[in-house]
């Protein structure tokens, strides 16, 4: 069988130019398709609707929490504290890497089991790898009942005076 060596076939400048253009067009189209596919896949993998529940829940009447109480809601991962200046809600999720902290009533501090960060009951870091304080969450009084909204963070000094 005769071997046709394409490298030695005659080809003039115009033809070469035409082929370069077509090659560019072709690889451009391939690139666009690849990029488009990547975007579509990423969009597909990102969920559009999430059923992650409503962050609001009722805690109880303020007079059930005397001064100095730290109420722990394990299920909601929230502390509700009655401090000297008023009531506030703290997220119990450690700001380091997301473990759920625990309250040690004896020393009145909050400790994280994962890497040992400690916080005081106002949420400030007292030691350990965490660098930011526990998030404060919205706490409001509705019809005489304290309501926390875990989906709504608030400023670090926010307290509710009753």
């Amino acid at each position: 069988m005769p071997f046709v060596d394409d490298l030695r076939l005659p080809c003039d400048e115009d033809e070469l130019e035409r082929r370069r253009f077509l090659a560019l067009l072709g690889s451009g189209a391939l690139g666009l398709t690849a990029a488009g596919t990547a975007v579509v896949v990423a969009r597909y993998l990102e969920p559009d609707v999430l059923d992650e529940g409503d962050g609001r829940f009722e805690v109880g009447r303020p007079d059930a929490l005397p001064l100095g109480t730290v109420l722990v809601s394990r299920a909601r991962k929230v502390y509700v504290v009655h401090g000297p200046r008023g009531f506030y809600a703290l997220s119990a999720v450690c700001t380091h890497l997301g473990c759920v902290t625990g309250h040690e009533p004896g020393q009145d501090r909050i400790v994280c089991p994962c890497h040992g960060s400690t916080f005081d009951v106002t949420g400030r870091v007292t030691s350990g790898p965490a660098t930011t304080r526990l998030r404060r969450l919205s706490l409001t009084l509705r019809r005489g009942v304290l309501v926390v909204d875990t989906g709504q963070p608030v400023g670090d000094d926010t307290v509710l005076e009753v």
């Binding site: 909601r76 473990c99 759920v100 902290t101 625990g102 994280c112 089991p113 994962c114």
Partner: peptide, 19 residues
């Protein structure tokens, strides 16, 4: 149990250096 972190919570051995 998403509400209760075991204490201590350890990773598998080859990630303990990282932890």
């Amino acid at each position: 149990d998403p509400a209760r972190t075991p204490n201590p919570a350890k990773a598998p051995w080859y990630f303990l250096g990282l932890q």
